[in-house]
Design a protein around this nucleic acid. Structure first.
Lengths: 208, 208
DNA sequence: AAAACTATAGACAGAACGGTCTTGTTTTTT
DNA sequence: AAAAAACAAGACCGTTCTGTCTATAGTTTT
């Protein structure tokens, strides 16, 4: 259990992970440590004490800021999602051209994400996979995250005058999830390009 | 924590889950109980005692058959994979017509799987999501499982005389994973059809 | 300067964890 | 009928878990 992994992920100087910003106060230190450990070793498998050791904070401090481990998990997921979306949609907003370009750029950005040495798959997919039944807070956070993406995709599909906006968004979302899982399992970022090729194919057909 | 969920999944009288076959000996009872609990509540979150209670067996019996919890997890994954593949490829072998039909039928079968009330996503995807770093046995089992599918897909792509057999197989695999995750998260089996439509689109393009 | 806040350090509790072991019963094999 | 294997029931061990509590110290606010 060495853990001297390089986890600062520049990603062109705009690392997506909020673990990239060196935390100052104890709360952020806890969040950062928890985020890393949860993603690396799982939520249940990561103990409070391990988080505290890594964060270099006291136990009372953790329980001052979060009333339980569950709440910490929820907070970490929420923060991780927000930071990720900020990075992702920020990158997307730089893309020039019509909506089609923007949709396809999704997969280029995904590839950058996959190539990050600190990529362990989507935290939300992983969280739902681990809890599934039971933990509603986790599912809700995941739903919200996915909804953000879906809303954005629908807007693009509308701009493209796609015949079925919802179905187009769903289709790209399937490619999105598929690329994440495939890249995570095979540790191969190029699955983003495979997904992109299918997206191109699909959008071409939409044009009729 | 009620858990009086209907878990016998006929699926046209040929339920995929080996939990569907009422187990006789203690070993199978343990495997069946463990499988259900692992999928529902996660691997780490499921304790040995919980498995024993559900299985109605004694602790010594479990440790007579499996030398550790890790080994039990590995055994469950292996059995689950084998049974699933038996069901899946069995269904596929019934499909008439050219290879293209068989590839598209994959998504029809997936939809049946998704519609099963006992569907919690792919056990392998979930397992990798939970362990990721560390547990090599889990990753190996997942790799093997995926390899089975990939090999089958390549054979179909070859029969179809696809220009790039490997890339075709990878593409369908992305749709496969994407459909599973999307259906699991949204609890909506129709994502299989969304994936199927994209597969059709992609295979049509392959023909030139 | 006083009060309020934020933090550290670590003992502690109670439960749950994985795993071992013993004792005795049932089932199967020979 | 005898021997061997599989099983039940559950006490038990050492560890780890989440979460609480006390005591102390630095920092910010009023």
């Amino acid at each position: 259990m060495e853990d001297n992994v390089q986890e600062f992920c520049p990603l062109d100087g705009s690392g997506w992970s909020f673990a990239a910003i060196p935390p100052k106060n104890a709360r952020d230190k806890i969040m950062s440590a928890a985020s890393h450990l949860f993603c690396n070793h799982g939520f249940a498998a990561t103990g409070i004490d391990t988080i505290l050791t890594r964060a270099g904070t006291a136990k009372a401090t953790l329980y001052h800021h979060f009333k339980s481990k569950e709440e910490l998990i929820a907070a970490v997921l929420e923060a991780e999602g927000e930071t990720w979306r900020g990075w992702f949609f920020g990158r997307l907003s730089e893309v020039k051209g019509p909506a089609r370009n923007r949709i396809l750029a999704v997969f280029d950005i995904l590839e950058d994400w996959f190539a990050d040495p600190g990529f362990y798959g989507c935290p939300f997919i992983n969280a739902v996979a681990e809890f599934d039944t039971g933990n509603d807070a986790v599912r809700k956070a995941a739903d919200l995250h996915k909804q953000h993406l879906l809303t954005w995709l629908k807007a693009q599909a509308m701009e493209m005058k796609a015949p079925d906006v919802t179905e187009t968004a769903r289709s790209i979302a399937v490619l999105f999830d598929g690329a994440i899982v495939a890249a995570q399992h095979a540790r191969d970022p190029s699955f983003a390009r495979t997904a992109k090729a299918m997206a191109e194919c699909y959008l071409d057909q939409q044009r009729g």
